[in-house]
Design a protein around this nucleic acid. Structure first.
Lengths: 252, 252
DNA sequence: TTGAATCTTGCAAAATCTACCAAAATCTAC
DNA sequence: GTAGATTTTGGTAGATTTTGCAAGATTCAA
């Protein structure tokens, strides 16, 4: 087989799988690893694909960004259920702040019909709404925090400090009786600004997050209006939260 | 068999298979490798097929799809050449402002090795750099302008007004002796801020943009340091630009 | 920080390309 | 129809490109 044909088959294969290792591609086009490596270098030069350590991936995956989806596999069914339940809480034409977690991303994909005004610092969310005109999307400025696809830094904080919204849909690393916490310290300040800017604050947390504590404290329970979780949520925790006046929705 | 018939059969065979090796074709038309080689040279000259190492391929494969927007298909080869030439102008660790055109996007895909600091309002560019830590990417805030994947509005303008960069890599709708112009009025103000923020201003313009005028005037020629274009650029225009002290680079 | 995987680089073998040549086929002029 | 010129064809030698491999450097994940 000639190099051009090989490269085309590599492209096609990557379009299907989104990501492939060198071994995989080598077998797929029946050439040595070295040859595949050189082909990938050329394709990357052309800009059609993206090199990664150990393989390659498409530049513009039609679905989601890769590392994002990888992270997403955990608790996928629960997250989708939570997202659907949470989206149901949003009215038509509301202004919604969307946090940058994976669960919140799923909420974003279900909001299109409500023609919302969205404010976000999540690249995947921005990307999702790039092709539609149904929603007006405001993206905060900031520096890209790789892998998470989120914009951070003073620019982002300033931006959220300046806006007002009806609802903020948030994610977090853990929720305990002491409050909500998150694993990425750099996000804390931004999330506080988001919460401050919104009239109503909704947290989307699958059951693994409840009762857990993450590294950086984010806020107390008193700022939370609603929590959306899944059926495996510990009953006592739910009862305690409701006792404190927090609406807890359990997604089916 | 006559040479004409042979060439016709070669064309037909290639249309079916998209790729073919010399051996394959030689057997197919029952002629020696040398003869097939000469036939292919002639067909390639005519433009009906393309020569590759070890064989040939059809010029316009039906499934040569690019995941980027439809706008991108236009002048693709030229844009890639321009992008490569433009990327060569960037040094290591420089701060680079990237505009939101498709040509500029191609430049972005070639900058990773220079570990640049990138400032952009282009979602595709932001997305491209989402997975890597090689470059620091600052995204301007703004409202998503759907079809183009670009962030616009006061947030974006303010942001670019606040920063300073070594180089701005710009695109535009047209360049005439009167100056540079663009088709999307909403971008003008942002582009002006970009130009103002950069020490050196590079415009990437394929030959179809030279001599053309677009709707909204953007800036005069005097702010331009360098123009990167392709070989089909009108000679007189290039000479005139150089006479005005603008560096014009013609990508091979 | 360590160990494993992956990348880079240089090199030699294999494949392919570029002339070039001689034989075969075709054309031309008579 | 035929001799000589012209074109086409198939083959060959040397240059070039591509390929696979392996040693040493680098990167990644734990």
């Amino acid at each position: 087989m000639q190099s051009e044909e090989r490269q085309k088959r590599i492209e096609e294969y990557l379009l299907k799988t989104e990501f492939a290792s060198l071994d995989e591609l080598s077998e797929q086009v029946d050439a040595s690893i070295s040859t595949v490596r050189r082909d990938l270098d050329q394709l990357a030069e052309k800009g059609t694909i993206r090199r990664t350590h150990g393989g390659a991936r498409v530049v513009n995956p039609k679905s989601d960004e890769f590392t994002f989806t990888a992270r997403d596999q955990h608790q996928l069914a629960e997250k989708e259920a939570i997202a659907t339940a949470c989206a149901a809480l949003i009215g038509m034409n509301q202004t919604v702040i969307l946090d940058a977690g994976t669960t919140v991303y799923h909420v974003a994909t279900r909001l299109e019909a409500k023609s919302p005004q969205i404010i976000t610092n999540s690249l995947p969310v921005a990307n999702f709404y790039n092709t539609t005109t149904k929603a007006e999307v405001v993206v905060s400025g900031g520096v890209i925090y790789p892998r998470l696809g989120v914009l951070i830094g003073p620019l982002a904080v300033e931006m959220f400090a300046k806006v007002r919204a009806d609802i903020a849909i948030m994610g977090a690393g853990g929720l305990s009786p002491d409050g909500v916490s998150n694993s990425h310290g750099l996000l804390i300040e931004i999330q506080r600004a988001m919460i401050h800017a919104a009239k109503k604050v909704i947290f989307c947390l699958d059951h693994t997050k409840l009762g857990r504590q993450s590294i950086s404290p984010l806020c107390g329970l008193d700022v939370i209006d609603t929590i959306v979780t899944d059926q495996a949520a510990p009953v006592e925790m739910v009862r305690a939260l409701r006792k404190r006046g927090i609406e807890v929705i359990i997604a089916p």
